[in-house]
Structures are given as structure tokens and as C-alpha cells.
Amino acid sequence: MIFPGATVRVTNVDDTYYRFEGLVQRVSDGKAAVLFENGNWDKLVTFRLSELEAVK
């Protein structure tokens, strides 16, 4: 189960963010908004829950 605050990895091989890890900001309607941070940039991207896996 994916909840806000969880760290997730993108599993969709066709996505630009494949294998990126980010922090879930919100979850609704089968989608999750994931925040990616890297140095001087932040990006908030929405994914279907089926495209994400929780990082242990």
C-alpha cells in the first residue's frame, strides 16, 4: 500500500522517470503525486498507482 510520505520507485519502463525514486505527496483516484528532488530542482509528477512500487 502506498501512502503520503512513502518513498516510491517508478516501475513503468516506458516512462521518462523509470527507476527514479521520490516522495509521495498525495494519493487519490488511483493516482499518486510524487515529488522528485535533485540538487537545485524539484518536480511533482502524477503516476497511476500501478506504475509505482514502495521502496523498502
Rank of each mutant, 00 (worst) to 15 (best):
V8K: 00
V55K: 04
L49I: 10
R19T: 09
N12W: 04
V27N: 02
I2Q: 01
K31Q: 10
Y18F: 09
G5S: 04
G22I: 04
T46R: 05
D29V: 05
S28A: 12
G39A: 10
V24E: 00
T11A: 06
L49M: 07
K56R: 11
V55S: 05
F3G: 08
M1G: 13
T7G: 03
D42F: 15
W41N: 10
E37N: 14
T16A: 14
G39Y: 08
R9E: 02
L52N: 00
D42V: 15
M1K: 11
V55R: 04
E51P: 00
D42I: 15
G5I: 02
D14F: 13
E21I: 15
S28G: 10
V24N: 00
V34L: 03
V10I: 07
E51T: 04
N38A: 11
D14P: 03
L35I: 07
R26I: 11
G22E: 00
I2D: 01
V24P: 00
T16P: 15
L49H: 03
V13R: 12
K56A: 13
V13G: 07
D14G: 09
R9C: 07
R19D: 10
P4L: 07
V34T: 01
Y18L: 02
V8F: 01
E37Y: 12
S28V: 11
L35Q: 06
E21L: 13
R26W: 15
F47C: 04
L52K: 00
N12R: 10
M1W: 11
G30V: 04
V34Y: 01
G30R: 04
K43C: 14
R9Y: 06
N12T: 08
Y18P: 00
Y17L: 08
E21K: 08
F47H: 02
V45W: 04
V45G: 04
T11K: 09
E37R: 15
E21G: 03
R19C: 11
V10A: 02
D29H: 09
L35R: 09
D14H: 13
I2A: 02
L44Q: 06
Q25L: 15
R19V: 03
A33V: 15
E53W: 05
T46W: 15
T46A: 05
T7D: 02
R26S: 15
V8I: 05
T16E: 14
R26Y: 15
F36C: 03
D42C: 15
